[in-house]
């Protein structure tokens, strides 16, 4: 291509998509061809429809429930990867004689579910749809907190989603969700008697543990536990500057130095040691339960200057 000197050279959506063309397009058809006859997936489309129908009917017959789009998409690679759009497939099936028992319902909030009227009546399906809708709303709230707010969801916030609904019903729904494979990412944690939820798809367990520590407000314990975990797991020293992340650790930045100094003087934190790099002046902490002094020094040195000098 011509060398780029274009002053209009800017990132745009085309370039972003193009940067991962194999993801979205799978292949650049202009540039590849297939030795084997194409159309194999077209021939298999009947199998995909049959599998989708089987899923909807089995759910209705055996579990007495309705099926979501996500339930159906897992049955075929093309459905899963979006090469075949589930709704379009179902629309096509609606016109075919073999699938006339399959019906669609839309809940009050616009969620769509599918069922077989051979095994569920319209009223029964509607009731099931309402339950599934409630689960979906609860899960959505927890996931949104974990993803968007990077925060734990207090159980009170879940009760508040449906003020007119008794806590017992919400608790029953939460209990049912623990057995539902669609909601296995939802985790419950407890601190000082308070119950919280998070989605480990967006907010993992150890991050949640740190948030709980920060919520408790014991800054010295927050730092010490973080340092001990890093010394134990990786093992590595912890650059004290990381605790300037107020949103995560809850330590006012102007208090950090004092908190560390006081912590180092307490017998319960005697295993925590402080070292300073003589070139960068970075402060590192480590737990001598897991790391020897000389090794801690060496790791800090590698982190501060060694790695950069060894490209």
């Amino acid at each position: 291509m011509l060398p780029e000197e274009n002053p209009e050279r800017r990132a745009n959506e085309r370039e972003q998509v193009g940067s991962e063309a194999p993801v979205d397009d799978g292949i650049e058809t202009r540039r590849v061809s297939f030795l084997e006859e194409d159309g194999s997936w077209q021939k298999g489309l009947g199998e995909v429809k049959a599998a989708v129908a089987r899923t909807i009917r089995d759910s209705a017959r055996e579990r007495r429930t309705v099926s979501s789009v996500e339930d159906l998409a897992e049955w075929d690679d093309y459905l899963r990867y979006g090469q075949i759009e589930v709704r379009a497939l179902l629309e096509e099936m609606a016109g075919e004689a073999d699938y006339q028992d399959l019906k669609c319902l839309t809940t009050a909030t616009g969620l769509v579910y599918f069922y077989s009227q051979t095994f569920l009546t319209e009223e029964e399906a509607a009731r099931k749809g309402t339950v599934e809708e409630a689960k979906s709303i609860i899960a959505g709230a927890i996931r949104a907190d974990s993803l968007e707010k990077v925060a734990l969801t207090p159980i009170g916030d879940i009760y508040a989603l449906a003020p007119g609904t008794g806590a017992g019903i919400v608790d029953a729904l939460l209990d049912a969700m623990t057995h539902d494979r669609r909601y296995q990412d939802l985790k419950q944690v407890t601190a000082a008697g308070e119950v919280y939820f998070h989605s480990d798809r967006y907010l993992v367990d150890n991050y949640a543990a740190t948030l709980l520590l920060a919520r408790a407000g014991d800054h010295r314990a927050t730092i010490a536990e973080t340092v001990r975990e890093e010394s134990r797991i990786y093992p590595r020293t912890t650059n004290a500057a990381c605790f300037l992340d107020y949103k995560l650790y809850g330590i006012p930045p102007d208090e950090l130095e004092t908190v560390i100094r006081v912590m180092l003087g307490k017998p319960e934190f005697a295993d925590i040691k402080r070292i300073v790099h003589p070139v960068t002046n970075a402060v590192h902490l480590y737990s001598e339960r897991y790391i020897a002094a000389e090794h801690a020094w060496a790791m800090m040195d590698w982190e501060e200057v060694g790695r950069a000098n060894n490209p």
């Binding site: 993801v23 799978g26 090469q83």
Partner: peptide, 20 residues
């Protein structure tokens, strides 16, 4: 020209998604 792929389209796409 183009590069010929020996396997079929569906297997090829699945392999690519898996790798990704």
């Amino acid at each position: 020209g183009s590069v010929r792929i020996a396997t079929d389209v569906k297997t090829w796409k699945k392999l690519n998604y898996y790798w990704l």
